[in-house]
C-alpha cells in the first residue's frame, strides 16, 4: 500500500480526531488569509519563516543541494497556488513539509528511474531493527573530528538510510516535529512513524558507532574508508 500522501489539502489524517486540533488560531492562519487576499508581504513573511526548514528537509531527503533549491522554490509556489486548499486544520508549516516531502520523493524517483522511491521503500527489511553493536562511545565523540569531517560522517551515514527512514528521522529528530505532525506530514499512522523512527535511530546508531566507539583504532580506520 502506498503511504505517500497524494493530496495537499490539510484534512485531519491518520485517525486524528477533532479533539487533537489546536483550539487556538495560529498566527500563520492570519498571514495565510492576508496572502489569499493578495497581500504579498504576508506571503513573504511565511516564506521567510519556513524557507530554511523546507530547504533542509528537501536536502536531507534528496541529498542534493541543487534539487533542494529547486524543491524549496516549487514548494512555496505550489503552496501559493493552493492557498485556498489550506483550511487551518493543520499547522501551515506541516502543510508545507507535506508538500516538500512529496516533491522531494518525486525528485528522487526521477533521478532513479529504474527504482521505486516512496515512503515504503526498503522499510520491510529487518536490517538495523535489532542492535548488534554494544560498544560504548567516547565522551563527546564528535569532538574528535573537525567540523568538516563530522559533517561528512553524518551526511554519509544518513544518506545510507532508505528514504522512508531518512525522512522520518529528519522530520522528527532534526526538524523537531512531533510524532503526530510527522505522521500528518507523511500520510502515515502514528504507530508507523514510531516504528520507522526506532529503526532509523538504531540504524544510524550502529553506523555511527564505527566512528564514535571507544577503541580509537577503529574510528581511524573508519575515517580512512570514508576518504
Amino acid at each position: 500500500m502506498a503511504a505517500q500522501p497524494s493530496s495537499i489539502v490539510d484534512e485531519p489524517t491518520n485517525g486524528a480526531s477533532a479533539a487533537e486540533v489546536p483550539a487556538e488560531i495560529h498566527p500563520d492562519v492570519a498571514l495565510v488569509e492576508r496572502a489569499k487576499a493578495g497581500d504579498s508581504a504576508a506571503f513573504e513573511v511565511l516564506i521567510k519563516q519556513y524557507e530554511r526548514q523546507i530547504f533542509r528537509t528537501a536536502l536531507h531527503i534528496t541529498q542534493n543541494r541543487e534539487d533542494a533549491e529547486d524543491i524549496t522554490q516549487d514548494v512555496f509556489f505550489k503552496a501559493y497556488q493552493k492557498l485556498d486548499q489550506f483550511q487551518g486544520n493543520s499547522k501551515f508549516s506541516t502543510w508545507l513539509v507535506r508538500i516538500a516531502v512529496n516533491e522531494s520523493l518525486m525528485r528522487l524517483r526521477k533521478r532513479k528511474t529504474s527504482k521505486t522511491v516512496s515512503m515504503d521503500q526498503d522499510v520491510e527489511t529487518s536490517e538495523g531493527s535489532i542492535p548488534r553493536d554494544f560498544a560504548e562511545w567516547r565522551p563527546n565523540p564528535e569532538q574528535n573530528f573537525s567540523q568538516t569531517e563530522l559533517a561528512e560522517i553524518l551526511r554519509k551515514t544518513i544518506a545510507g538510510l532508505p528514504p522512508g527512514f531518512r525522512t522520518v528521522f529528519t522530520l522528527r529528530d532534526i526538524e523537531n516535529l512531533s510524532t503526530e505532525e510527522t505522521a500528518e506530514a507523511l500520510g502515515l499512522s502514528v504507530p508507523a512513524v514510531k516504528s520507522r523512527l526506532l529503526r532509523a535511530r538504531l540504524q544510524l546508531r550502529e553506523r555511527l558507532s564505527r566512528y564514535f566507539r571507544k577503541a580509537p583504532e577503529d574510528s581511524r580506520d573508519a575515517m580512512r574508508q570514508l576518504k
Binding site: K48, E51, R52, F55, R56, L59, H60, E69, T72, Q73, P131, F134, E136, W137, P141, E142, Q147, L150, A151, L154, R155, I158, F169, D173, I174, N176, R201, L202, L204, R205, L208, S209, F212
Partner: peptide, 28 residues
C-alpha cells in the same frame, strides 16, 4: 543502546550539516 542512541539524536540535532545561507534564502 540508550546512551548511544540518545547521542546519535543529539549529534544530528546539533549539527550544521545543511545550513541555508542568507544569500541563498534571499535568492530562493
Amino acid at each position: 543502546v540508550v546512551d548511544t542512541t540518545r547521542k546519535t539524536i543529539e549529534v544530528y540535532r546539533g549539527s550544521r550539516m545543511y545550513e541555508c545561507p542568507e544569500e541563498l534564502a534571499e535568492r530562493m
